[in-house]
Amino acid sequence: MINDLNCEVKEMDIRPIKSKRTTEIILDQIKELIVKGELSQGDKLLTENELSERFQVSRTSVREALAALSLTGILEIRQGGGIYVKANASNAIIEPLTFILLLEKNKLQNILEVRKALEVEAAGLAALRRNEEELATLGDLIEQMENDLPDAQNSEALDLKFHLTLAKASENPLLDRMMNTVQEIMGQTLQVTRALWMSATTEGTSYRLFEDHRNIYEMIRDQDADMARRLTYEHLRKVELELGKYREEEE
């Protein structure tokens, strides 16, 4: 719980609302203030009455918006104690990306594109910023991947751990959180694409996947950011192309 003793009410740049979708607009404005950093963890908001006056809407609309933000973990509403921005509010804002991806018609293709956007840069930053502990973790994962050959029964879990470790090693908290937020969907993507790939190719596929990861690891170890990005992109591009071939055969 956030201590509300001697806590000043946080001033906010609130714009009056003139729309039937008042609850949604209140939600958007408050989330925007958090994203911009104008509201931070522990900040106390105005009261329902004050927000209603600032937004120029009914208290009911304000109450509905605050309740929704509370349910998603962005705000904490204390009975008689005020309204506060909760810890990890940024995670609660990012998390809906998972649901957006789940609802997409071309889910696998879209997720692969998201993976490229996130993981290519994560690899480059990891090469520049990784510490010895993170490098050791990556090396251990490469060793586990090699020991898992030729059947590669644990390849999905090891693959996911490898890329999440790269995100952590990037030393970019937002990138790390985004990668972890979509990790479940990423896991589903890996499971499906690997199943398709393995069923359509030879025993050598598992070795090629291992070599891709080993080469990326070596670039991280050598702190070659450009090659780390390039190899990660090429690795994910291979998965994308194989999935495209499978779709063409199915059609």
Rank of each mutant, 00 (worst) to 15 (best):
K10D: 07
Y217R: 15
A123D: 05
I216C: 06
E11K: 08
K116D: 01
L75D: 01
L69W: 00
A167I: 00
E203N: 10
E184A: 07
V9Q: 13
A200E: 06
K18F: 11
D13G: 15
G124A: 00
E143A: 11
D226V: 10
K10W: 05
E143D: 06
G204H: 05
S170M: 06
D226T: 09
N180W: 06
L5S: 09
E242N: 09
D140M: 04
E64I: 13
A89F: 04
I93T: 02
L125K: 02
R78I: 06
F210A: 06
M178N: 08
R230K: 10
P16L: 01
E218F: 09
E50G: 05
R237E: 10
Y207W: 05
L158R: 09
Y84P: 13
N180P: 01
T181H: 11
N3P: 15
A228N: 00
S61K: 07
I2V: 15
L103G: 10
L241R: 15
T98Q: 05
L138K: 02
A195I: 12
L243C: 13
D212N: 11
I93P: 00
A67S: 04
A152T: 02
I14L: 11
L149G: 02
Q144P: 07
Q223G: 14
R237T: 10
E132S: 14
L243F: 08
Q41P: 05
M219C: 13
N6L: 09
N215F: 14
I2A: 15
H213N: 03
E53W: 01
N88M: 07
N172V: 03
G42T: 02
L39E: 01
R177L: 14
L190R: 07
T98L: 14
P150G: 06
E171C: 13
D140H: 09
I216F: 04
R59I: 03
L5C: 07
V120E: 03
Q183D: 14
F55I: 00
R15L: 14
I185Q: 02
L102I: 11
I2H: 08
L141F: 11
Q144S: 15
L27P: 05
F162W: 02
E76F: 03
Q56Y: 00
L149M: 03
Q29T: 02
T193H: 05
R177E: 12
I26K: 05
L66D: 00
L71W: 06
L190P: 02
T205A: 08
L138F: 08
E119M: 15
R194C: 05
E38S: 03
L125G: 01
L75T: 08
N49F: 12
L51T: 14
R63F: 13
V9C: 03
D151M: 10
E53S: 07
A225T: 07
T181L: 07
N88V: 15
L108H: 15
I30T: 03
E95Q: 12
K116F: 00
R177C: 10
E234V: 06
D4W: 09
A169S: 03
E11W: 11
M145T: 05
E143N: 10
Q153N: 10
L102N: 12
D148Y: 01
E38N: 04
F162P: 01
E113D: 09
A167G: 04
E146V: 13
M179C: 08
M186E: 10
N106P: 07
I34M: 08
K20M: 09
L46M: 12
M1W: 04
K86F: 01
R221P: 07
Q144M: 13
I14S: 01
E121W: 11
I74Y: 03
F99S: 13
K116Q: 00
L166P: 04
